[in-house]
Amino acid sequence: MTTITDEMLSAFLDGELGASQADEVRAALDSDPALRARLAKFEQADATMRDAASNVVDRRLPQSVMAMLAGEKTSVAPLKAHRPRRLGGSRFWPTALAASIALVLGLTIGVLYQGARLGNTVGSNAQIAARVAPGDPLFEALESTPSGQSVAFGEAGGSIQPMLSFASASGDPCREFMAVGSDDAVRAVACRERNSWRIDFAVRSESAGTKNGYQTASASDARLVSDYISDVMVGDAFGRETETEVMAEGWRGK
């Protein structure tokens, strides 16, 4: 007697076997009760998947998705106002990525300079791209602090922590970093140009008023930064060794 493998039986169930193999399976099913039981189990497995799938789609869609599909316009507003708070769905997403980016373009080099005084500085005289030159504490921090380590920044207990280094599509080495102040934090991506670090993307999170509030408030903001990096990153992020090497070479693009 031919042995009917799981693969054959499974493909039989899906109608994906050629005629002769299908006949073979049929004949085996006729004569082998254990195989029939196996087929029934496979059908049950499919039913389990269908049940799970229908449980999932029976749940209410997150408000943010419904809003998107309804074509609701979102206005530019602070991230905080956009952040859905357990409205029956995800809490991790601001409703409009574009709106959030529009907001963060308001960052100026001054915001980053001031470190500990990050709050309330998103001014109306916004400049778009900030460049950080040698001699600036932020430049030094980006230039020589390994990812995962943090250096003091500003006067009131602020810090800069590079988090990740990677190569961008343009060939420049880039770093994600977080600048933490007393009542808010900026997550940003800086890319190394010939003589400066250029801030390409930044999201400011206000703290919720507690000392560590920015941490809990920043999950969706962190996602924005992750998304941005996914878009511009080529290959994987640098491992420690690569980062150390690139750092030692003064961040020359490869």
């Binding site: 799981d6 499974s10 493909a11 899906d14 994906e16 497995a45 389990t48």
Partner: peptide, 13 residues
């Protein structure tokens, strides 16, 4: 695809 399906079903069983 065929082998993954068989294994998926096997594991659920």
């Amino acid at each position: 695809v065929m082998s993954r399906l068989a294994r998926a079903r096997h594991q659920l069983v």
